[in-house]
Amino acid sequence: MIEVTQLTKTYGKKHNIFTALDDVSFTIPDGASVAILGKSGSGKSTLMHAMSGLDRPQTGKVVIDGEDILTLKTKAVDKFRATKMSFIFQSFFIQANENCYDNVSLPLEIANVPLKERRKRVTDALESVELGDKIKSKAKNLSGGQKQRLAIARAIVNKPQIIFADEPTGNLDSATGEKVEDILFGYNKKNGVTLIIVTHDPDLARKCDMQINVKDGKIESIRESKTKSIANVTKKGVSTV
């Protein structure tokens, strides 16, 4: 469960002060898929950064597994991210000069996973995004959709509890984007991983269990899809990819 309480983030000082997040509160159950919607500049990314401990808002709490990550030391937050979270970005941020294997292996190296186990997990992750045959290919030689699938493999390889995706389909055409969405939702359902997607796309948002609308740094509305019962998603723990 992720509990966000009275989160406020401001930029600048005194006369120039800008409130990017204004007293934001909500709760996300484990295993839910969540869309954060809003216009450009409304504060979606800022919210996501705060929830993942990358950013430090001035006030408020982000409680994950009973722990307020905003009060943790840098080292502890790093460990939290290395073991429990993952990111997918609009522009992939894969290492173009490295092959797929090394790209996916990075989170495991950061989390100190032993080499032997790494090999298996990387292969499994690549296979689950249908890139098993590209293991030795340089990332720069992949197509856009393949690149984002590689990013997904990198995001799931450390078996996270939460995946943050900032406009994961923003740079992809609709068909390719749909494939990426399918993989993400499939993983979310199969493994009970909490999926938090920042998006402009209403169609994508509709597929999520929960939609959080952000406007000018404030929560405008929170909607939970009627078709899915979030309460039924129990904490399964994370099984194999």
Binding site: T74, D78, F93, L106, P107, I110, A111
Partner: peptide, 16 residues
């Protein structure tokens, strides 16, 4: 810069 940002986002420690 981006690579460093990514590594830090993935939880790589400053020291590393």
């Amino acid at each position: 810069t981006q690579q460093i940002g990514l590594m830090k986002a993935l939880g790589m420690r400053r020291r590393d």
